[in-house]
């Protein structure tokens, strides 16, 4: 069975990436997305990954991946050296997500950011009813051991983009079975019904 994450990778993210583009996957994990894009979109891919076991898996898959910490190491990548930078469900784990976002747009012409949506109704309800930090399918950790330092809603992310003059070229709502576009007109409702938000942004 394909997990939600795989579904997003194969169906949504791949659809946003042009054939033969040069892609940097920040926090590329075990490299499955990069490998999928290499095979299906013939991308020239690179990865940056903090976990050494993951890097080893990437190397065994023939991917070019550097062990490193995006918050420290993105500074070493030249301006506009990639077509696309991907940050898949990782922006909330950085100390300075805003800085990382802007770095990605310095390095790449476009960035694809996916976020677990804290505005999702089940998350809101969970907090409202239980009075404790929400634990859901996309946010499976307890507050004391979560890697997520900066949770945001889809609306929060929109607001940050407008604050930093970042263009949202496309945004997509994902909830268990449905994939749909987010527009400024349906933002409020999509912020309620989406488990995940996918954003294609540029500067």
């Amino acid at each position: 069975m394909r997990t939600l994450k795989m579904k997003i990778q194969d169906d949504v993210l791949a659809g946003l990436i042009d054939i033969n583009s040069k892609v940097l996957d920040v926090g590329c994990g075990d490299g499955n997305l990069l490998l999928y894009l290499k095979r299906n979109k013939r991308i020239d891919g690179r990865g940056l990954e903090i976990n050494q076991k993951n890097v080893q898996e990437c190397l065994a898959k023939g991917l070019a991946v550097v062990e490193g910490d995006a918050e420290k190491d993105l500074v070493n990548y030249p301006n506009q050296s990639f077509d696309i930078a991907i940050l898949n469900q990782a922006i909330q784990q950085f100390y300075e997500p805003r800085k990382v976002l802007n770095e990605l747009l310095r390095i790449a012409k476009q960035a694809i950011i996916t976020i677990p949506n804290f505005g999702y109704w089940k998350v809101r309800l969970n907090l409202l009813v239980t009075g404790t930090m929400p634990v859901t399918k996309t946010l499976p950790h307890s507050w004391y051991d979560t890697p997520n330092l900066h949770m945001s809603s889809i609306k929060d992310f929109y607001n940050l983009c407008s604050l930093d003059n970042i263009n949202v070229i496309k945004s997509i709502s994902i909830s268990s079975n449905k994939i749909s576009d987010i527009t400024s007109n349906n933002l409020e409702i999509k912020n309620l019904v989406s488990e995940l938000g996918v954003f294609v942004v540029s500067k």
């Binding site: 050494q52 890097v55 080893q56 990437c58 070019a64 991946v65 550097v66 070493n76 990548y77 050296s81």
Partner: peptide
């Protein structure tokens, strides 16, 4: 070395063994 190779878009991987 990694940074120099990255800066020219070379295919570079890097691991630091603890």
């Amino acid at each position: 070395i990694v940074i120099a190779l990255n800066s020219i878009g070379a295919q570079v991987s890097f691991v630091n063994i603890v």
